[in-house]
Design a protein around this nucleic acid. Structure first.
Length: 647
DNA sequence: ATAGGGTTAG
């Protein structure tokens, strides 16, 4: 186009006249048979320009092309396609239900296919159903079945899409892919995989797009083995040589499955990378809490001459948040501000808020929130969660008020944080008020988590019988609900009640997990119920199939130590996987203190200082052991070492 | 035509 404009200067008139005639005939062509044209108006390349491309000649027509004859717009309107004005027109033009008179003109079904494709693109289910209806009435369904399946799939009507695909026995890769893509998008990964298998069973070979969708499904379900299998297949077919999207889907799959070395290896081997490749990898590192690696990738990418975009910044801010890198975060903030990205990207603004909040810079976060041109419930939730995490329950509650004064209603996420705030500052009256609002909004029906937060709030405020009452009235409860209550009783020193709740839970058929046992073992430890604790610990594996975590072992060592059964405690320490042992030494050392066992104590002490970066607690305990044994010199020596290390 | 990376909580 620019070439043609250039020529206008020299021999303008003749040239433009020629173009005018050319486009006039093209538009005539278009109206003779619109089904011969693709509508590219939402392609990523030029989202702003409606762009019809002829299937075979590749001629293209722009809705707002400067050589268009004046009657084009009027003609489009006359045919009932749409009323024409800018973006709205472009999205509705091909999707409008056609008047019956026009439909009759395309009895081969092609006109329906064109209209259905537009509905697919615009996710216009309403029009799509109307078209389906007309198609049935005219007996054209055989010719339109693929377009119908695709339309229903994209509009989220998966049952309908599947039904039609089966009914008409589609042999078209693209149609099958559309259904697979829809399953993957909706998070129904297993269905996507089943569909993928069935398609191949019917002798239809997947293409690069199908593989991309399947990798997406693998990513959401963490199916790294299946993902690797796909990787091998596409590599063998040479599809990675020329398809960057497919390569990126692979990187993302590995990253989302936590296989970051594989993702890193792949990005280095791909023939080409772009900003999306790096974003997938950086996002993976950020999610896994490996902030340093994310930052390294960020440097690497820029070194390669690839500029970060808004998504990159979101990922990097998340990385900064997880490792508390506020300085780098502020640098990024500057960059974002310079590029003016905050004004139109809520996700980016939220990521920035979250970075400040997670780094404990809450006044900065609050200032930023105030300055944002757009705020929503998510922005406020981020700030509120930040205050709660920082232990500033009162501030969190203040935010709730500010937010509501702005006319923004809290949602389930808000209430989760707010209840936690009430729990930390033991604000039971406020908690009760929130409880009433949650109940009134009907939020308890579809959020077990919110119910659990209520139980936790009442429990942490010391209102255990209220907590139990709430739990027993919840529409749905799970192991977390009961574990929360059990831990609540344990914290309040009501061990018998905790054990009683365990029975109630089992009677309901809910299986305990490792967290439940930590509370129960603590109770046994405090009540001196050594035998019972032992029995519970044994039953974890044998009766409930729960693998004890390191906290369980710590509880047991504590329990045995209090009872003076050091030998058994030592056995347990040796039983547990060596990688998990870091937290156990302190418990063993404390047990040695209770029993006054200097030799074992010395050994536990050595282990403890080896794994523990903080040199405080083991030195204190060891000092106490020496002091109790009357070895004052040794005790002073240990204390001196502690002071030295802490300086 | 069908397709890739991203925000709050847990």
């Amino acid at each position: 186009m620019s070439g043609k404009l250039h020529q206008l200067g020299s021999c303008g008139v003749a040239k433009s006249e020629e173009d005018r005639r050319r486009y006039e005939s093209l538009w005539n062509e278009f109206f003779r048979d619109p089904s011969q044209w693709w509508d590219n108006s939402t392609s990523k390349r030029s989202p702003k320009h409606a762009d019809f491309k002829h299937k075979f000649t590749k001629d293209s027509l722009l809705m707002d092309g400067c050589y268009n004859p004046p009657w084009v717009i009027e003609e489009l309107r006359r045919r009932g396609f749409a009323s024409l004005s800018g973006e709205l027109c472009r999205s509705t033009i091909m999707g409008a239900a056609l008047p019956v008179s026009l439909i009759k003109a395309y009895e081969d079904g092609a006109a329906f296919v064109v209209s259905l494709r537009a509905c697919t693109k615009n996710k216009d289910l309403h029009r799509g159903i109307k078209l389906h209806d007309n198609i049935l009435k005219m007996g054209l369904v055989e010719k339109c079945s693929d377009a119908l399946v695709t339309m229903y799939a994209k509009c989220g009507e998966l049952e309908k899409a599947k039904e039609l695909l089966n009914l008409h026995n589609s042999r078209d890769v693209i149609t099958w892919t559309a259904l697979i893509a829809a399953y993957a998008r909706k998070g129904q990964s297993q269905r996507a995989l089943n569909c993928f298998d069935r398609m191949q069973h019917e002798g239809i070979s997947p293409n690069a797009v199908t593989y991309t969708c399947i990798l997406n499904a693998c990513a959401t379900m963490g199916a790294v083995v299946k993902g690797e299998e796909i990787h091998n297949v596409v590599a063998k077919q040479g599809l990675l040589e020329n398809n960057i999207v497919l390569g990126n889907a692979l990187i993302d799959m590995y990253a989302k499955c936590g296989a970051l070395p594989k993702a890193q290896d792949l990005i280095e081997r791909l023939p080409s990378r772009d900003v999306v490749s790096w974003n997938a990898l950086i996002g993976g590192y950020a999610r896994e809490g490996q902030g340093e690696q994310a930052l390294t990738c960020f440097e690497h990418m820029q070194h390669e001459g690839i500029s970060p975009d808004a998504v990159t910044y979101i990922c990097i801010l998340k990385a900064c948040a997880t490792i508390g890198e506020i300085a780098k975060g502020e640098e990024i903030h500057d960059e974002i501000r310079k590029q003016g990205l905050l004004q139109n990207n809520m996700a980016l603004a939220t990521a920035l808020l979250d970075m400040y909040a997670k780094c404990g810079a809450l006044s900065k976060a609050q200032k930023l929130l105030k300055k944002l041109r757009f705020r929503n419930v998510v922005s406020w939730n981020t700030l509120i969660a930040g205050y709660v995490q920082d232990g500033q329950g009162k501030q969190a509650l203040d935010c709730l008020n500010l937010m509501q004064r702005e006319g923004i209603s809290p949602d389930a996420v808000t209430y989760l944080s707010i209840l936690k705030a009430c729990a930390t500052i033991r604000a039971i009256e406020k908690g009760q008020e929130i409880h009433e609002r949650i109940a009134k909004d009907g939020l308890l029906q579809d959020s077990t988590m919110l119910g659990n937060a209520l139980v936790d709030m009442y429990a942490k405020c010391g209102a255990l019988s209220k907590a139990q009452d709430v739990l027993q009235k919840l529409p749905s409860r799970n192991v977390v609900s009961w574990s929360t209550l059990i831990e609540g009783y344990a914290q309040e020193g009501q061990g018998e009640q905790a054990l009683h709740c365990f029975e109630l839970m089992l009677n309901e058929g809910i299986r305990p997990d490792a967290v439940t046992f930590v509370s129960l073992l603590n109770v046994c430890s405090h009540l001196g119920l050594v035998d019972m604790g032992h029995a519970l610990f044994a039953s974890m594996k044998t009766k409930f199939g729960v693998i004890p975590n390191s906290e369980c072992y710590t509880c047991m060592v504590d329990l045995l130590g209090r009872a003076g059964r050091l030998e058994r405690a030592l056995e347990l320490v040796q039983e547990m996987p060596s990688l998990q042992r870091s937290a156990i030494w302190l418990a063993l050392l404390d047990a040695c203190r209770v029993r006054g066992d200097i030799n074992l104590g010395r050994w536990a002490f050595e282990q403890a200082v080896q794994v523990n970066k903080s040199h405080g607690p083991p030195y204190i305990l060891m000092g106490q052991i020496y002091a109790a044994a009357g070895m004052q010199d040794k005790a002073r020596n240990i204390e001196a070492q502690r002071v030295k290390y802490q300086a």
